[in-house]
Amino acid sequence: MLKEEGAPAAASAPETSVKEHIENVLAWIFGTTFIALAAVVTVETLSRKLFNISLQGADELGGYSLAVGSTIAFSLALMGRNHIRVDVFHEMLPKGLQAFLNWFSIVSLAAFGIFVAWVATKVIADTMAYGSTAQTPWATPLIWPQSVWYAGLVIFALVATGYALRATGLLATRRIDTLNHDFHPKSAKEELKEELDDLANRQAAEGAKP
Protein backbone atom coordinates (compact mmCIF):
# COMPACT_ATOMS: atom_id res chain seq x y z
CA MET A 1 0.00 0.00 0.00
CA LEU A 2 1.40 3.32 -1.01
CA LYS A 3 -0.26 5.43 1.65
CA GLU A 4 -0.15 5.06 5.38
CA GLU A 5 -1.95 6.98 8.09
CA GLY A 6 -0.63 10.49 8.47
CA ALA A 7 0.84 10.54 4.99
CA PRO A 8 2.01 14.04 4.09
CA ALA A 9 0.39 13.86 0.67
CA ALA A 10 -3.12 12.83 1.48
CA ALA A 11 -4.60 14.79 -1.39
CA SER A 12 -5.05 11.84 -3.65
CA ALA A 13 -7.97 9.78 -2.40
CA PRO A 14 -9.55 9.27 -5.85
CA GLU A 15 -6.15 8.27 -7.24
CA THR A 16 -5.94 5.60 -4.57
CA SER A 17 -9.26 4.12 -5.49
CA VAL A 18 -8.35 4.10 -9.17
CA LYS A 19 -5.14 2.36 -8.24
CA GLU A 20 -6.98 -0.17 -6.12
CA HIS A 21 -9.43 -0.76 -8.92
CA ILE A 22 -6.60 -1.48 -11.38
CA GLU A 23 -4.94 -3.73 -8.81
CA ASN A 24 -8.14 -5.68 -8.31
CA VAL A 25 -8.71 -6.23 -12.00
CA LEU A 26 -5.11 -7.34 -12.56
CA ALA A 27 -5.16 -9.56 -9.49
CA TRP A 28 -8.29 -11.36 -10.63
CA ILE A 29 -6.87 -11.93 -14.11
CA PHE A 30 -3.67 -13.21 -12.54
CA GLY A 31 -5.36 -15.42 -9.99
CA THR A 32 -7.97 -16.99 -12.23
CA THR A 33 -5.25 -17.73 -14.81
CA PHE A 34 -3.32 -19.83 -12.33
CA ILE A 35 -6.31 -21.44 -10.65
CA ALA A 36 -7.60 -22.46 -14.08
CA LEU A 37 -4.15 -23.72 -15.01
CA ALA A 38 -3.93 -25.71 -11.78
CA ALA A 39 -7.32 -27.26 -12.55
CA VAL A 40 -6.37 -28.23 -16.10
CA VAL A 41 -3.00 -29.62 -15.02
CA THR A 42 -4.63 -31.61 -12.22
CA VAL A 43 -7.13 -33.13 -14.63
CA GLU A 44 -4.31 -33.93 -17.06
CA THR A 45 -2.14 -35.54 -14.36
CA LEU A 46 -4.95 -37.62 -12.91
CA SER A 47 -6.35 -38.73 -16.26
CA ARG A 48 -2.89 -39.73 -17.41
CA LYS A 49 -2.31 -41.79 -14.29
CA LEU A 50 -5.78 -43.26 -13.93
CA PHE A 51 -7.21 -43.59 -17.41
CA ASN A 52 -4.18 -43.57 -19.67
CA ILE A 53 -5.52 -40.47 -21.40
CA SER A 54 -3.22 -37.54 -21.99
CA LEU A 55 -4.61 -34.14 -22.93
CA GLN A 56 -1.16 -33.30 -24.30
CA GLY A 57 -0.43 -29.66 -23.92
CA ALA A 58 -0.89 -28.89 -20.25
CA ASP A 59 2.82 -28.05 -20.08
CA GLU A 60 2.47 -25.77 -23.06
CA LEU A 61 -0.45 -24.05 -21.37
CA GLY A 62 1.71 -23.66 -18.26
CA GLY A 63 4.34 -21.78 -20.27
CA TYR A 64 1.77 -19.42 -21.72
CA SER A 65 0.13 -18.86 -18.33
CA LEU A 66 3.48 -17.85 -16.91
CA ALA A 67 4.13 -15.50 -19.83
CA VAL A 68 0.83 -13.74 -19.23
CA GLY A 69 0.84 -14.02 -15.44
CA SER A 70 4.41 -12.84 -14.93
CA THR A 71 3.95 -9.62 -16.87
CA ILE A 72 0.77 -8.80 -14.93
CA ALA A 73 2.64 -9.64 -11.74
CA PHE A 74 5.41 -7.15 -12.60
CA SER A 75 2.82 -4.36 -12.50
CA LEU A 76 1.23 -5.58 -9.29
CA ALA A 77 4.62 -5.90 -7.61
CA LEU A 78 5.41 -2.36 -8.70
CA MET A 79 2.14 -0.99 -7.32
CA GLY A 80 2.74 -2.79 -4.03
CA ARG A 81 6.37 -1.57 -3.99
CA ASN A 82 7.55 -5.17 -3.85
CA HIS A 83 10.46 -4.98 -6.27
CA ILE A 84 13.15 -5.57 -3.67
CA ARG A 85 15.58 -2.89 -2.66
CA VAL A 86 18.00 -3.21 0.23
CA ASP A 87 17.15 -0.52 2.76
CA VAL A 88 19.79 -0.88 5.46
CA PHE A 89 22.35 1.62 4.26
CA HIS A 90 19.74 3.66 2.50
CA GLU A 91 18.30 4.78 5.84
CA MET A 92 21.70 6.17 6.94
CA LEU A 93 22.05 8.52 3.99
CA PRO A 94 21.09 12.22 4.15
CA LYS A 95 17.51 12.98 3.12
CA GLY A 96 18.55 14.74 -0.07
CA LEU A 97 20.60 11.81 -1.26
CA GLN A 98 17.82 9.41 -0.30
CA ALA A 99 15.43 11.46 -2.40
CA PHE A 100 17.77 11.34 -5.36
CA LEU A 101 18.20 7.55 -5.02
CA ASN A 102 14.48 7.01 -4.67
CA TRP A 103 13.89 9.08 -7.77
CA PHE A 104 16.67 7.32 -9.65
CA SER A 105 15.35 3.89 -8.62
CA ILE A 106 11.88 4.41 -10.00
CA VAL A 107 13.22 6.09 -13.14
CA SER A 108 15.62 3.21 -13.78
CA LEU A 109 12.88 0.69 -13.12
CA ALA A 110 10.69 2.49 -15.65
CA ALA A 111 13.59 2.53 -18.10
CA PHE A 112 14.01 -1.21 -17.58
CA GLY A 113 10.27 -1.73 -18.14
CA ILE A 114 10.39 0.26 -21.36
CA PHE A 115 13.50 -1.61 -22.45
CA VAL A 116 11.87 -5.01 -21.93
CA ALA A 117 8.73 -3.89 -23.77
CA TRP A 118 10.85 -2.60 -26.62
CA VAL A 119 12.77 -5.86 -26.75
CA ALA A 120 9.45 -7.71 -26.81
CA THR A 121 8.42 -5.69 -29.84
CA LYS A 122 11.20 -7.47 -31.73
CA VAL A 123 9.94 -10.83 -30.55
CA ILE A 124 6.45 -10.00 -31.81
CA ALA A 125 7.77 -8.69 -35.13
CA ASP A 126 9.80 -11.88 -35.69
CA THR A 127 6.89 -14.13 -34.77
CA MET A 128 4.69 -12.35 -37.28
CA ALA A 129 7.37 -12.43 -39.95
CA TYR A 130 7.98 -16.18 -39.54
CA GLY A 131 4.40 -17.15 -38.78
CA SER A 132 5.89 -19.15 -35.91
CA THR A 133 3.88 -22.13 -34.72
CA ALA A 134 4.58 -24.07 -31.55
CA GLN A 135 6.12 -27.52 -32.11
CA THR A 136 3.43 -29.15 -30.02
CA PRO A 137 0.31 -31.23 -30.54
CA TRP A 138 -1.76 -28.06 -30.46
CA ALA A 139 0.44 -26.29 -33.03
CA THR A 140 -0.50 -22.98 -31.39
CA PRO A 141 0.24 -19.92 -33.52
CA LEU A 142 2.80 -18.26 -31.27
CA ILE A 143 1.38 -14.81 -31.85
CA TRP A 144 -1.67 -15.58 -29.70
CA PRO A 145 0.07 -16.01 -26.36
CA GLN A 146 2.78 -13.55 -27.29
CA SER A 147 0.39 -10.69 -27.98
CA VAL A 148 -1.18 -11.06 -24.52
CA TRP A 149 2.31 -11.28 -23.01
CA TYR A 150 3.27 -8.16 -24.93
CA ALA A 151 0.23 -6.30 -23.67
CA GLY A 152 1.26 -7.18 -20.11
CA LEU A 153 4.75 -5.81 -20.66
CA VAL A 154 3.40 -2.59 -22.17
CA ILE A 155 1.11 -2.14 -19.16
CA PHE A 156 4.10 -2.60 -16.87
CA ALA A 157 6.11 -0.05 -18.84
CA LEU A 158 3.21 2.44 -18.70
CA VAL A 159 2.58 1.99 -14.98
CA ALA A 160 6.29 2.37 -14.21
CA THR A 161 6.53 5.43 -16.41
CA GLY A 162 3.55 6.94 -14.60
CA TYR A 163 5.26 6.47 -11.25
CA ALA A 164 8.54 7.80 -12.65
CA LEU A 165 6.85 10.96 -13.93
CA ARG A 166 5.23 11.54 -10.56
CA ALA A 167 8.56 11.09 -8.79
CA THR A 168 10.19 13.47 -11.25
CA GLY A 169 7.48 16.03 -10.59
CA LEU A 170 8.05 15.74 -6.84
CA LEU A 171 11.79 16.08 -7.26
CA ALA A 172 11.45 19.07 -9.58
CA THR A 173 9.20 20.86 -7.11
CA ARG A 174 11.50 19.93 -4.21
CA ARG A 175 8.85 18.00 -2.33
CA ILE A 176 11.56 15.79 -0.88
CA ASP A 177 9.56 14.42 2.06
CA THR A 178 6.67 13.30 -0.10
CA LEU A 179 9.09 11.75 -2.57
CA ASN A 180 10.90 9.87 0.18
CA HIS A 181 7.65 8.82 1.74
CA ASP A 182 6.09 7.46 -1.43
CA PHE A 183 9.12 5.94 -3.09
CA HIS A 184 11.48 4.73 -0.38
CA PRO A 185 12.40 1.03 -0.30
CA LYS A 186 9.74 -1.02 1.37
CA SER A 187 11.13 -1.96 4.77
CA ALA A 188 10.67 -5.25 6.53
CA LYS A 189 8.58 -3.32 9.01
CA GLU A 190 6.05 -2.30 6.39
CA GLU A 191 5.91 -5.74 4.89
CA LEU A 192 5.36 -7.15 8.33
CA LYS A 193 2.65 -4.64 9.09
CA GLU A 194 0.67 -5.90 6.11
CA GLU A 195 1.06 -9.48 7.29
CA LEU A 196 -0.02 -8.57 10.81
CA ASP A 197 -3.03 -6.61 9.62
CA ASP A 198 -4.14 -9.62 7.68
CA LEU A 199 -3.57 -11.89 10.64
CA ALA A 200 -5.53 -9.56 12.91
CA ASN A 201 -8.39 -9.65 10.42
CA ARG A 202 -8.28 -13.44 10.34
CA GLN A 203 -8.34 -13.68 14.11
CA ALA A 204 -11.09 -11.09 14.40
CA ALA A 205 -13.13 -13.11 11.94
CA GLU A 206 -12.42 -16.26 13.96
CA GLY A 207 -13.53 -14.54 17.17
CA ALA A 208 -16.67 -13.11 15.62
CA LYS A 209 -17.87 -16.60 14.84
CA PRO A 210 -20.13 -18.19 17.46
Binding site: R48, N52, I53, S54, Q56, D59, Q135, T136, P137, A139
Partner: peptide
Protein backbone atom coordinates in the same frame (compact mmCIF):
# COMPACT_ATOMS: atom_id res chain seq x y z
CA UNK B 1 4.10 -33.50 -32.33
CA UNK B 2 5.00 -35.69 -35.30
CA UNK B 3 5.92 -38.61 -33.14
CA UNK B 4 2.76 -38.16 -31.07
CA UNK B 5 0.60 -38.43 -34.18
CA UNK B 6 2.52 -41.49 -35.30
CA UNK B 7 2.04 -43.26 -31.97
CA UNK B 8 -1.66 -42.47 -32.14
CA UNK B 9 -1.70 -43.96 -35.61
CA UNK B 10 -0.33 -47.30 -34.37
CA UNK B 11 -2.79 -47.28 -31.48
CA UNK B 12 -0.61 -46.17 -28.55
CA UNK B 13 -1.14 -43.26 -26.15
CA UNK B 14 1.54 -40.62 -26.67
CA UNK B 15 2.75 -38.99 -23.44
CA UNK B 16 5.10 -36.04 -23.70
Amino acid sequence: QNLAKFIEMVGGTPVP
